[in-house]
């Protein structure tokens, strides 16, 4: 899975993957719930899993990990902002 992809979960909900990072060999995504083909202000952090050769996601519940992921994503956005200013 990769950013800018819209994933449909087995419960029918849809999420758009906004940012991604890797930590301890696992891949994590910042995702926005996707309703009526548009993102909403409901956000989730997902861990990418592979179950029976198929992708699956698990919401990140650990608060410590959650804080680290948010920090990482903010750094990414800051870097993008710097890049934007340079251009």
């Amino acid at each position: 899975m990769g950013i800018d992809e819209v994933i449909t979960l087995e419960d029918g909900s849809e999420y758009i993957l906004l940012l991604s990072t890797e930590k301890d060999g696992s891949k994590y995504f910042l995702a926005s719930k996707y309703v009526n083909d548009a993102p909403t202000d409901s956000y989730d952090l997902f861990k990418e899993l592979v179950v029976d050769n198929e992708f699956a996601v698990e919401p990140v519940s650990d608060e410590t990990l959650k804080a680290k992921l948010i920090e990482e994503f903010e750094n990414q956005v800051d870097a993008m902002d710097e890049e934007e200013k340079e251009n």
Partner: peptide, 17 residues
Amino acid sequence: EVPTNQSFLRVRGRRLH
């Protein structure tokens, strides 16, 4: 890499934004 508590949700479809 599969948790035992079935907290995950399988991805049934993917499409580009």
